[in-house]
Design a protein around this nucleic acid. Structure first.
Lengths: 213, 213
DNA sequence: ATGTACATAGTAATTATTATCAAGTCAAGA
DNA sequence: TCTTGACTTGATAATAATTACTATGTACAT
């Protein structure tokens, strides 16, 4: 059933911000930009309108890796390149001579309506970061990782100790059982906050100390 | 930090079911198959293990359209075809002679590690369904759509009436204001449960009658 | 036999998105 | 000009998809 699509002020701003963007933003990224101009706009309004504008043929949806929906002002179908580290998406222009042809017997009974080509790799910014990391700018782990109460307790116990500790040592200064300590230590190792210089002995890392602040 | 990966019974079943599948299932689809053999397995276990097995290099992750993660037993990179109607994913084998080459100047500073080609269209099953629909097997709307209480109220009022009704007519036999009726009607039209033979007059559809059962 | 490490089930929490509804706003008709 | 109808919004609830947490299970190492 047809209905008229009104070009509201909010929709004009959404389109303007999408037009400016070259990185095929997610709804959330676009929302952060739009609210600088429309402080009262709702995230639900952005989500709803991206879908409405796409269905009306005004913008296009970018089908690319990652869980979040991405949109593009450019209606002409083109190819993309995706950064596996920071999830950024850029356009890539291939010569029109490179066309993929699928023969009838390869089509598996599908009626094919299109083809997307997606390159993936590491973007210039993340390549720079990687180079710094290799040069000893040592930033392991993720300092912004949330810690559960039990993880904090274990990490604090390790922070107070000057020597590597075992599970029993930690249990004796916390309210946790040694078996519980073991589980928390596994999670903290994964986050890069705890290291094990010797088997069954643990110590806090620099990242772990930062995470406690 | 490295650790040993144990091949538990659950993991063996997960791998066996993934191996049998040719449609690159989502975690949820795989879970439905696995629980026939392991009734007590947890969905969280399936999710966690798919990620672990992928990170261990035992299976591959299929990056394709749609919000859900998909996995494949086949480790060799290959191309896919995706049904835009039912979201099914199949393999497609292109001759190895068709290679996409990206010149240095086109790479935008990225270090490219790979390329995915995804075809999209309508699969054989959905093509059959479409043919039936065109032949008058009329199945519009979605009978399984949930209805809110207010939507039900409006639909029931329309079901009782033999003639097309306006908002005021519906308001007089329900607890809703005409303005509220208007909003509910918009939603019901979208679902295919209400039609408007004349402007400002509404009637229930066959789908709408079915949805009330 | 005991301690350690990896794994699971059940459930809570998080992320990303969509539905609902009262109220706002604009267009059409009387 | 007023009333009615239709589309839209902001706020919030709900849903879908996924991940984190924890007590407990199980296997391995000492």
């Amino acid at each position: 059933m047809k209905h008229t699509l009104r070009m509201t002020h909010q929709r004009e701003i959404i389109l303007a911000e999408l037009r400016k963007s070259t990185s095929h933003p997610t709804a959330d990224e676009l929302y952060e930009r739009i609210r600088k101009k429309l402080p009262r706009i709702s995230l639900a309004t952005v989500y709803r309108n991206l879908e409405i504008l796409f269905e009306a043929g005004v913008i296009s949806k970018v089908e690319i890796s990652g869980r979040q929906k991405r949109f593009d002002y450019d209606l002409e179908e083109h190819d993309h390149i995706y950064c596996v580290k920071c999830h950024r998406v850029d356009n890539i222009n291939l010569p029109k001579t490179q066309k993929i042809v699928v023969r009838q017997k390869e089509q598996k009974g599908y009626r094919i309506s299109g083809c997307r080509i997606e390159f993936y790799g590491i973007c210039p910014d993340c390549r720079k970061k990687q180079k710094k990391e290799l040069e000893g700018d040592n930033k392991m782990g993720c300092s912004s990782c949330e810690l559960s109460d039990k993880q904090k307790e274990v990490l604090e116990a390790l922070a107070k100790s000057n020597d590597p500790c075992g599970s029993k040592d930690i249990a004796s200064v916390t309210s946790l059982e040694p078996k519980q300590i073991s589980c928390q230590i596994t999670a903290l190792k994964k986050k890069g906050y705890v290291a094990s210089p010797v088997r069954c002995k643990y110590e806090i890392t620099e990242e772990g100390k930062k995470a406690l602040d």
